[in-house]
């Protein structure tokens, strides 16, 4: 579909008046076309005004509890438990990715070429992943190693557990190291179904930027290592992994790293 074709359909899209097959085609186009997307957002805002213009009716008082209860039921242990997990496996994942990020920051040095550092960080990540998956003893050693590395980093370390939406599989972790006088470092690790994925970071002022594509590794997992992120990573509040169709594959909230 060309931009001309899509723009011809955007009003109907805003009114949810497109047949499903056509709507899907339009969505695919919008994922990769900022110009049409902006136009689409404007029209959707106009359509929402129609809904907001409806005279308000008082909902029954019980509806508030019904709604909060329904969300809680979905977000509880049987719903999206991995997102809220603070268990051992989540700590191990974060530990592994955190170590990889710290090792990359401390040992590589900013003067090296980016391609070389990326390669090195990636191989270190993979090696550390293999190590950390093994035993609890490794986990303890890793925690000590992390503690000593964190102490050496000139910056603030944030971590995010990445969990899938309900009904999808996968798990991951992200580490962001924000440094005041140098570009930031980002390492994301994930196990996901074999597909193409990209990572988006959302900042506290509501802005978002693409961090890059996840790279598949021979260990059948995915890694993204970036040592020269120009944006201020201290402002990042969410890490979101999208699949090739623009659907959320994993997401998580970035929080300051606290030793387990």
């Amino acid at each position: 579909m060309s931009c001309l074709d899509v723009r011809d359909l955007l009003a109907e899209r805003a009114l949810d008046a497109l047949p499903p097959a056509t709507a899907a085609e339009v969505e695919r186009h919008l994922e990769g076309c900022p110009g049409c997307r902006k136009e689409a957002e404007g029209l959707r805002e106009a359509a929402a005004a129609i809904g907001l213009g409806v005279p308000l009716s008082l909902p029954p008082a019980r509806l508030a509890e019904r709604v909060t209860g329904a969300v809680a039921a979905h977000s509880g242990p049987s719903g999206r438990e991995p997102r809220r997990s603070t268990g051992r496996s989540a700590r191990v994942l974060v530990g592994a990715v955190l170590t990889a990020a710290l090792v990359a920051v401390l040992s590589v040095g900013w003067a090296m070429s980016q391609s070389a550092t990326l390669q090195r960080a990636m191989s270190q990540t993979v090696t550390l992943q293999q190590r950390v998956r093994s035993t609890e003893a490794t986990n303890k050693q890793l925690a000590n190693q992390i503690a000593s590395l964190v102490a050496e980093v000139q910056g603030t370390v944030f971590v995010a557990n990445l969990a899938p939406p309900v009904g999808r599989q996968g798990v991951g972790a992200a580490v962001l190291i924000a440094q005041s006088s140098a570009p930031g470092t980002l390492v994301v690790w994930a196990t996901l179904r074999r597909e193409a994925y990209h990572v988006m970071l959302v900042t506290s002022n509501g802005r978002s930027f693409q961090a890059g594509d996840l790279v598949w590794t021979p260990n059948d997992d995915y890694v993204l290592s970036r040592l020269q992120v120009p944006q201020n990573l201290a402002k990042v509040v969410s890490v979101v992994v999208f699949d090739a169709k623009g659907r959320v594959a994993l997401s998580g909230t970035a929080r300051p790293y606290a030793q387990p």
Binding site: V71, G76, N205, G206, V237, S238
Partner: peptide, 17 residues
């Protein structure tokens, strides 16, 4: 608004309310 949605996403009941 963004912060509120982060809290909702985290399943915080007060944010949903």
């Amino acid at each position: 608004e963004q912060e509120l949605m982060h809290q909702v996403l985290a399943g915080e009941r007060d944010a949903v309310r």
